[in-house]
């Protein structure tokens, strides 16, 4: 058994802030005494990641994804709990630790805004002490997969979001880090750019064994990249496991969609504990819980009762799964 590359236990981050009351009197009072409020952005999160894994870290807005990433990258100090990444405690050994990781925040750039991209790369080369030879090889790889040479001589502010993201990804990997953190790496990108970014990540993971932890709102990122997902909500860990079992656990529901010649009466729509709902004219859907009834017997039931002209079975989409988690939590 290899040593995990990321080990997080009991991780908690509490933000303290001062409540601002309305009105002049309250404002004056706050000069003397301020009301402190505490918000636990992340509470008691525990997981480990093995080398070479690609893990999706998902949750609704404000669930605590970014806060977790910021603690894992040494930017924020945990209120309590422990983190060990690459053998370092991130906030304690920050300077040495960050030399061994790559980080991309989709909403920001780590490149210098007003100067040519290539100057940023040259600076990063010096910071990480990359040799001339390695640098050349690295840049060649980035150009083959990401095609960055086309805009190396432009300042970052003149790049499109997709171009900028490609450069940022390249920048985060210039020193061949074994561990890569991505916070919303595909946010705002068009389909082509997204596909390009995903391909690149797959290639880096396959060829260099780079371990990747990524947060995203785009679940097709997760579906193409990650076999394992961690779901957090309101700062708490809800689920940690394979994507498929998340789907089974949350939505063990398959829909049978069928078309009919003659529209049935409302009373006919409820049968044997199943409920058909109209989704279009002459088209109905029945959601079945496969723990209770098999898809085959549900189809038989439907065919017996209605004059079916067409029928299809739909597996739940991961989007649906996650929407349901965000809405209802995990039972």
């Amino acid at each position: 058994m290899t040593e995990p590359i990321v080990r997080v236990s009991g991780l908690t981050k509490v933000f303290r802030s001062y409540r601002r009351e309305e009105g002049l009197a309250a404002a004056l009072k706050s000069l003397v005494r301020r009301v402190q409020t505490e918000i636990a952005a992340v509470s008691d999160v525990t997981f480990v990641i093995e080398p070479g894994e690609m893990v999706g870290y998902i949750g609704a807005n404000g669930a605590g994804k970014s806060t977790t990433i910021k603690m894992l990258t040494g930017i924020l100090t945990p209120t309590s709990g422990e983190i060990v990444c690459n053998g370092f405690v991130p906030d304690r050994d920050r300077t040495r630790y960050v030399a061994t990781i790559g980080v991309v925040f989709g909403q920001r750039t780590q490149l210098w805004w007003d100067i040519a991209v290539v100057e940023s790369f040259k600076l990063l080369k010096e910071i990480y002490g990359v040799s001339d030879e390695d640098y050349r090889r690295r840049m060649a790889l980035f150009d083959t997969v990401l095609g960055i040479n086309a805009y190396l001589h432009q300042p970052v502010r003149k790049l499109s979001l997709g171009e900028r993201m490609r450069c940022d990804l390249a920048a985060s990997l210039i020193h061949r880090p074994p561990l890569l953190f991505l916070d919303e790496p595909t946010i705002g990108l068009d389909i082509v750019a997204k596909a390009n970014v995903r391909e690149f990540l797959q290639e880096i993971n396959r060829k260099e064994g780079t371990t990747v932890l990524l947060t995203t709102h785009d679940l097709s990122d997760i579906e193409t990249l990650c076999r394992r997902v961690i779901v957090i909500d309101h700062g708490r860990l809800l689920f940690d496991g394979p994507l498929a079992s998340l789907r089974d656990r949350i939505l063990p529901v398959t829909s049978v969609v069928f078309d009919v010649k003659r529209a049935p009466e409302a009373v006919e729509l409820r049968f044997n504990g199943l409920q058909a709902r109209e989704i279009a004219s002459h088209r109905y859907a029945v959601d079945i819980d496969r723990r209770a009834i098999s898809a085959a017997s549900a189809v038989k039931e439907i065919v017996n009762r209605f004059e079916v002209t067409d029928l299809m079975i739909e597996e739940p989409q991961i989007e649906e799964v996650v929407k349901r988690i965000y809405r209802e939590g995990i039972a």
Partner: peptide, 13 residues
């Protein structure tokens, strides 16, 4: 603006 994070992810004082 939160850009401070970008200086913290680099191994430089």
């Amino acid at each position: 603006e939160g850009r401070l994070a970008m200086n913290l992810i680099r191994p430089v004082n």
